[in-house]
Write a protein that binds this DNA or RNA. Structure first.
Lengths: 219, 219
DNA sequence: CACCATATAGACAGACCTGTATGTACTTGC
DNA sequence: GCAAGTACATACAGGTCTGTCTATATGGTG
């Protein structure tokens, strides 16, 4: 299916009010907002249907079950988040080190948004842990964390550190930790603090190559 | 063992089978286990009552509402967790720097436990965020995060860093980040990695006094 | 023994949950 | 105009949720 245009061909404009979108997008946007603001278990199908202005049968035509909607919601969050990370890290003129640090810049804008409520995947894992019975949802969450790990690893690899895997989990910790701190204290200063911390760690001999000063480089 | 006494009156019998405990303790232990393993919203009162082998009226005599039980559960987790942190950081012979790093040692054992499911308060915040309608629960979660912040601040204060507040949130990030990483990857190596990262950061001129090489305390 | 606090057992109300069923209106292509 | 596809509106089934109710059993203390 094409994005929004398969049914209503004139609704190709982004940022339209909800009732101008095709039903499937209305449902997904409404669910995404409600799941993130509140939590997944505490938001029922009926509410999503009511707030998206859709009939119940229409909902179940597009999403066979609530679990299906949840997984779609998490994939949607994954896509948009990785796009933000990519656009931050792929800006022209960044050195390999700066590219790693750019993931912290990507957080700044979301943190300042009043609607910020933490990491959707940490929240998802809180509600759908190993003992849950929703393979689709759990797989989507797992895919995000693996994807993030690989993404950071790919950024760190060009630095040619002596212990890159260790650096990856340290940077990931600063990254995920920043989200938790920002969520609980609402202080965006954590972004600068952790970007600097990451810089120190990456430049430090502990995790970089044992000969300080030898950097493999790029421009 | 006294700090927990507000919640647990006669817990001198650790490790006893559930049915040897008083009803209130049976309820709290069962609820604690279920809330943490699954999630709070997905575990109903009926299940807690069934698994703790208690009558419904007995439950509502000890806990006026489910929200009351949840808040008590979180206070119980707060108490036990701060006790672990205290016992790790107050060991004899530790330098001020080592005391800060000791909070990472405290995580190691919980991480290796098969029952480890992440931070109960991050999970709690995922289910009872700012828009929830459970003041008691939200207050308990907020109290934990403030308490942890103050605890780390009190450990860092003796180091006499030039920007202690910045160091506090960096260490907190490594701490909370380690929990998230451990939860999603199940790799306890994150503990050593982040303890070392914290050491580097604390010893680095960036967050210690601005004249590199001049270290106020440490040791 | 009587008294009382505390426990168990289980029915019940009222709300909410997911998912299905029924029927109707609107648009589009032939 | 007609058939097919899509969406809307609403009722309903069957289950679960929290919290209340009644009735009964037990154990310690006077």
């Amino acid at each position: 299916m094409m994005p929004t245009s398969s049914v209503l061909e004139f609704v190709d404009v982004e940022g339209q009010p909800l009732n101008a979108l095709a039903p499937r997008e209305r449902i997904l946007k409404t669910a995404s907002d409600l799941f993130y603001r509140f939590s997944i278990h505490s938001v029922g199908i009926d509410r999503i249907i009511a707030e998206s202005g859709v009939a119940k049968m229409t909902f179940y035509k597009h999403f066979p079950s609530k679990a299906d909607l949840i997984a779609t919601y998490l994939r949607y969050k994954t896509d948009t988040w990785f796009q933000m990370l990519a656009s931050s890290t792929e800006r022209a003129g960044l050195s390999p080190l700066e590219r790693v640090l750019a993931i912290f810049d990507a957080m700044e804008e979301p943190f300042r948004a009043p609607s910020f409520r933490g990491c959707p995947f940490v929240k998802g894992l809180a509600e759908f842990g190993p003992e849950a019975n929703s393979p689709d949802v759990q797989a989507t969450i797992g895919a995000y964390f693996r994807g993030l790990h690989e993404f950071v690893a790919s950024l760190i690899e060009p630095l040619a550190l002596s212990n890159p895997e260790r650096a990856v989990i340290q940077i990931l910790s600063l990254f995920q930790g920043a989200i938790v701190i920002a969520q609980s204290t609402r202080d965006p200063a954590i972004v600068d603090a952790n970007r600097d911390a990451a810089k120190v760690l990456l430049e430090d001999g502990l995790i970089s190559s044992s000969e300080p000063g030898v950097r493999k480089v790029v421009g």
